[in-house]
Design a protein around this nucleic acid. Structure first.
Lengths: 190, 190, 190, 190
DNA sequence: GAATAATCGAGACGGTACGTCTTGTCTTACT
DNA sequence: AGTAAGACAAGACGTACCGTCTCGATTATTC
């Protein structure tokens, strides 16, 4: 009893063009200036096609964040044995990312979307942010195991580090390498 | 050299009615469903009057949030000599505030507004968030002076603590007393 | 030299279903509310099939009108020798046709289609209206030959008679037997 | 107890611009290609303003026909005593009007609108067409009184003359001075 | 019987227009 | 000058159709 596919197949290519256009719109205008009309035009798609894939602006943004994830390509934190140096390298790279104007604009738009919608927020967390959190937490736990870090603080520390940078971003304070270094030096390492 | 006021005076009563209507709208529809038309009608005011007071939706919301200020009454962190205990008490109170549903909704609305507008972000930071940051940083510096905290980390630590709780709020994770305690125990105190 | 048809044959049954559905749509919604989507769905056909038979809405309507031809069965005008009586009989029958609500609706739809499209107009004229015109003109010319009618006016008179009834139809004035009689009595007969 | 006008007054200037744009659209694209978007843009008006004045396309077209009446400036038929000559002059002028491409296009659009809508049809008749009919009928009755025309045929004759030209227009046959002359010579004048 | 070819129902596609809603400005009469 | 009311230009919303294109399935004809 096979489900028969009828009619023309949906174009995955178009869907990706829509997501790419959404990303550009988010970066250029922010979340509440998103225009489905503009997205469709930029993607070379009809509006109906946008709505066929995504029933609402929120669903579109959620999938955009998932597909074009900023926190993507989050490398695992290297483990050279030197916890402080490893964290410093990783956090500096992360901060550099946050400090690029286009990435900053995109993260702010994503934050606005997450602030308005539980659905976006949870998806954003699970699909994007959690990866960075996990990468950090694993290296921190390794540090704990090696006796280089106060035990039992890995999870909270990981969220502190990411939260600190997000806070700087939202309050329009620069997210510099120096700030990243300060965060590392504020950790309870031995 | 007195500034002469001509014509009818602006009505402070009307301004408060506008803010009250905005608050109701925010509660009822959320930030991105705010309608100036509805606000004006609910406040019994003309739209022009709303725009005379507030040049944009964002400014209106900013003032509304300040009027109903969440971070208000941020107490200075007590200094009993026991840094860890003092931070624990203060952070628990702060976390409790963050975990109330209505306060959480307001902070999310404020975050959305701040994410979309540099102006709101800076104003929000200077008039709301910075107070908490300063309160924490002062106590931390006293701890540094007393040799209880690794020196030179007060500023970054204060931002980490607030950032961590904001991050939990935005990702819909509960901001519990336990989490507050974990943050404190992850500090480099002696 | 037979044209060889390969592949599946076109379904005449489907074509008739399309015309029937078009007729229903015209009756139900009028000319400018015609929807090819609805017609195809009602006929159980794909849209492409509709377009394979008819390149445009206008062609579809034209064929629909021809199939359900209003001016069909236009009898030649009888020639009993009494010109006035013959015209009276014929015009009364014609008027009766015009006065039926469903026929009137069809003619109005046809007129709308003809007003919008040269193609439909010419086709409609050649295949429908001209027959009535010719029938009238022939009898009028016979009358001229018999000295009963002012000579040289047959063609213009035929168009006047049909035009007069069409004008009444379009302006929502009833096309009665009395009107038909008045038209006849306004002719320059001896 | 006077009704107080509150708020900004409606702009009659804008309304006229909308009607003018509608007229241009009708002439250029025909009735069923009318686009409110285009009309609004051409009139330099917002769509809402169009809809504030006219609840539907049909109402807009109806008012457009009334305002920009084609049959307007219909002169009374001159009465020099020579019925045939008077009719000839008047009908030739009328035919010349019908034969101008832009007027022809506009009348066809009006006819399409009238064919689709009773409301437009009746308004079109009462406000435009009836004037020409009356002008003709009056001169014809004067001819009857003078014994120059078969008595009792004025009304039907007036409708025949107008109907004949409308019929030629709809079937894409030229409405020439010769045709006008033939119509006159087909009248039962003495 | 297998290969080829046109048609079929279905439905996604890029577009255009719909009629409604909201924004921020402007105008009016009243206070 | 400030106010409530509300018209205005602009433009986005989500829906309905347009005419085209793409599927897999269904008939025919030809080899």
């Amino acid at each position: 009893m096979v489900e028969v596919r009828r009619g023309r197949a949906r174009s995955e290519v178009t869907r990706r063009a829509i997501l790419a256009a959404t990303r550009d719109e988010l970066t250029a205008h922010g979340y509440d200036r998103l225009s489905i009309d503009r997205i469709a035009a930029a993607a070379g798609a009809g509006k109906q096609t946008v709505y066929r894939w995504y029933p609402s602006k929120v669903a579109l943004v959620a999938d955009c964040l998932l597909a074009d994830r900023v926190f993507d390509g989050v490398a695992p934190v290297a483990d050279t044995g030197d916890l402080v140096a490893d964290l410093r390298v990783w956090l500096r790279a992360f901060a550099a990312q946050f400090d690029r104007p286009d990435t900053a604009a995109f993260i702010r738009a994503a934050t606005a979307a997450a602030a308005e919608s539980d659905q976006v927020a949870i998806r954003f967390y699970e699909q994007s942010t959690a990866a960075a959190e996990t990468a950090l937490a694993e290296r921190l736990r390794a540090g704990e195991a090696a006796g280089q870090l106060k035990p039992g603080v890995a999870a909270a520390t990981a969220q502190s580090l990411i939260g600190a940078m997000l806070y700087r971003l939202l309050t329009r304070q620069p997210v510099t390498a120096e700030f990243a270094d300060q965060l590392v030096s504020a950790l309870p390492v031995r």
